[in-house]
Amino acid sequence: MLRKATVLAVAAVVLSGVPALAQNKDECLLASRNCSDQVDTIQQKMARLNGEIAKGTKVYTAQDLKVLQGKLREVNAQLDDLLKPGH
């Protein structure tokens, strides 16, 4: 009986940590939602994306990281377009 209670207690502790990790995700960046309270310059967005990518697999899945890296490439391309002569 004590063993079952211990196993259940350990499982509860392990599973309670999963939502905490999800809370560290930046859903606005990940889901491409236009969050009205977050208006960033291109440089700020690049810094946020780099910061989120740096969190790695402790916070994001491999697929999430690919999405963030793709968004970083898009922002870099936007910056490149803006820096072209004639703009």
Rank of each mutant, 00 (worst) to 15 (best):
Q69W: 06
Q43H: 05
Q78S: 09
D80W: 08
V67L: 12
I53Q: 02
V75G: 01
R3S: 14
I53R: 02
N34A: 10
R48D: 11
R73C: 05
K71D: 05
K71A: 09
Y60N: 00
R48N: 15
Q69A: 13
R3N: 12
T57P: 00
V59R: 00
L83Y: 07
A54G: 03
A54H: 03
R48V: 01
S32E: 12
D26P: 00
G70R: 06
L21I: 15
A31L: 14
V18T: 10
I42F: 08
Q69G: 06
Q78W: 08
L30T: 02
P19S: 04
A77P: 02
A12N: 09
M1E: 13
C28F: 04
N34Q: 14
D37G: 05
V18H: 06
L30H: 03
L8T: 10
P85V: 10
S16H: 05
L68A: 00
Q63V: 13
E74C: 05
C35Q: 04
G70E: 13
T61L: 09
G86M: 12
A77K: 10
V67Y: 00
K58G: 11
A54M: 04
V59P: 01
K66E: 13
K84Q: 09
V14P: 00
A47D: 15
A62H: 05
R73Y: 07
D37Y: 11
D81R: 11
A47N: 15
K84H: 14
D64H: 14
G56F: 01
A11W: 05
A22M: 15
T6R: 11
